[in-house]
Structure formats: structure tokens, C-alpha cells
């Protein structure tokens, strides 16, 4: 069983976000980067499957220097290898171009399973897993909360609105992980020590044979803006009965929502 896990380095979700002067980036100074929370479920699932079925696990991540610590953490948790897709040409790639680079890195690796987080927190596009499945010409199951692998077949339970779908098919497959799939482990001290000695393979555009395909970035970020300001709210005072009466009155006659 050979498993690839795609990981994205994103700003810690509790971080304050400041828009940089160029209006198309955020200020990176002082921002801590972490693996997108959903990617932790993907890593954990890869480790659990390896424990059960044996094999090899490789983490892939595309990005700048912020990726190193995130891949180091994946190694510390127990991933066997890590590959950093890094090139100046990879700056500001849209999801489709990102998926193309990942597909180039993964395509001929003989992987039975490609795991991703269902969403890269920050960009919040939910695109890369499906893009990757199409580019690799593989089946897919997204937003998965339960996964079983047996005899080159998979059975995945995925979340949809108000229901769960059970999807079955054959390997290889692209699976994206949702919260609930497992409980991610923390790296052990032994793992952290071992990860320090492991090498992170760096692949640039030339190594991926990617120059031509890069021209395909087809969606351009015009600018980042602060979220629309909400109007100053009203504090409703008084005892509970008075508060409730006033709230209902405001919802009905001012906000007109009930």
C-alpha cells in the first residue's frame, strides 16, 4: 500500500490577518503557519492504514519556506518521506495550477491512495482533491468521515447536506478527509527527533518538467479587501421579560426577519 498525502501550509486559524501594501498578499511576518486542519486527518488516516496494511507514506506540499516546518511535523507524526514542491514560479498559483503541479509529482509514483484535506483553510476553495482526481484520471470521494480499504477496494462514507453517502469503488482513488474521520495523533518526542534527521526532498519546476503547464494560471487575484463592516449592534437592556419583548419587537418591525 503506497499512500500520498497532500498538505497545505496555512496561517494558524487564530492569527490576525493583515492585508499587505500590495493588496494581493497578507503580511507573513509573525504569522505562524500550520498544516491546514483537515490535512491532519488525512495524515492520520495514512498512518493508520500503514499500521494496518503496511506500505509507505509520502507527504507532498507546494509553497514557500513556510512549508518546511509543516512537512517536518508530518514526518514527526510518522510519515516516511516528504516532498516540497518549491519554485519562484509556484508563487500565487490558483487551485488548478497547484493541482497540476501536485499531479506531476504524484502521477508516476505508483500510489494506491491519495489523501487530501477536504478544504485548505484560508483559500477555502474545496477544489484541489477533485482537480487532482481528474488530472490523475482517478475516481474520488470527498468530505469523507469513514474509510475502509480492503483487497484493492475502498468504501468511503462522505458528508452531504443532512445525510451521509456511502461510496464504493476500486483503488487507486483520491480521498479528501473531513473532521470526524479519526483523531490525529501528536508527534512523539522520538518522532520529532527522527524527523530532524530525515531529508525533505525539494522539487522545482524543472524537476517536475512543469514549465509549460504553469502558464495556465487563469484566475487572477485583483485585490484583498477587509470584510464588509457590520452595523453597530444594539444592546438590549432590562430584565429577561423586557429583553425578550424588545428583541421580538426589533426582529419583527426593524429587521423584519420573523
Amino acid at each position: 500500500m503506497k499512500i500520498a498525502v497532500c498538505v497545505k501550509a496555512v496561517p494558524d486559524t487564530a492569527t490576525k490577518i493583515a492585508i499587505a501594501a500590495d493588496k494581493t498578499h497578507i503580511e507573513k511576518t509573525g504569522v505562524r503557519f500550520i498544516a491546514s486542519p483537515y490535512d491532519e486527518f488525512a495524515i492520520e488516516e495514512a498512518l493508520k492504514l500503514k499500521e494496518k496494511l503496511g506500505g509507505e507514506t509520502v507527504a507532498f506540499s507546494l509553497g514557500g519556506d513556510e512549508v518546511t516546518d509543516v512537512l517536518r511535523d508530518a514526518l514527526a507524526r510518522g510519515m516516511d518521506e516528504a516532498v516540497h514542491l518549491k519554485d519562484e514560479l509556484f508563487a500565487d498559483l490558483d487551485p488548478l495550477s497547484t493541482a497540476k503541479m501536485l499531479a506531476l509529482a504524484i502521477a508516476n509514483g505508483g500510489f494506491d491512495l491519495i489523501l487530501c484535506g477536504q478544504q485548505g483553510v484560508g483559500g477555502d476553495n474545496n477544489q484541489v482533491p477533485s482537480l487532482l482526481a481528474e488530472l490523475l484520471n482517478l475516481p474520488q470521494a470527498n468530505v469523507v468521515v469513514k474509510l475502509e480499504i480492503e483487497n484493492s477496494k475502498f468504501k468511503a462514507e462522505r458528508e452531504i447536506e443532512g445525510a451521509h453517502e456511502i461510496v464504493e469503488g476500486s483503488l487507486p482513488v483520491v480521498i479528501s478527509a473531513q473532521k470526524g474521520l479519526n483523531e490525529p495523533r501528536y508527534p512523539s518526542i522520538k518522532g520529532v527527533m527522527a524527523a530532524r534527521k530525515k531529508e525533505i526532498a525539494v522539487k522545482d519546476a524543472a524537476a517536475l518538467n512543469a514549465k509549460e503547464k504553469l502558464a495556465a494560471t487563469k484566475v487572477k487575484l485583483v485585490e484583498l479587501v477587509p470584510p464588509p463592516a457590520r452595523t453597530q449592534g444594539k444592546k438590549i437592556e432590562g430584565d429577561a421579560d423586557a429583553q425578550v419583548k424588545e428583541l421580538v419587537n426589533l426582529l419583527r418591525s426593524e429587521a423584519r426577519v420573523i
Binding site: L96, N125, Q127, S130, V143, K218, V219
Partner: peptide, 23 residues
């Protein structure tokens, strides 16, 4: 932008080699 679209739309966008903006 529903569960179905999140699964389907990027797949077809990749097939058409066209970009997608979600949500």
C-alpha cells in the same frame, strides 16, 4: 456551492482546463 457542486464542479473545470472560483 453545495456538497454536490464542491465534488463535481472542480472535476469538470479540470477537464475543460478552466479556472474555478468557489463560495
Amino acid at each position: 456551492n453545495t456538497a454536490m457542486a464542491k465534488d463535481l464542479i472542480p472535476r469538470v473545470a479540470a477537464r475543460m482546463d478552466l479556472p474555478c472560483v468557489s463560495d
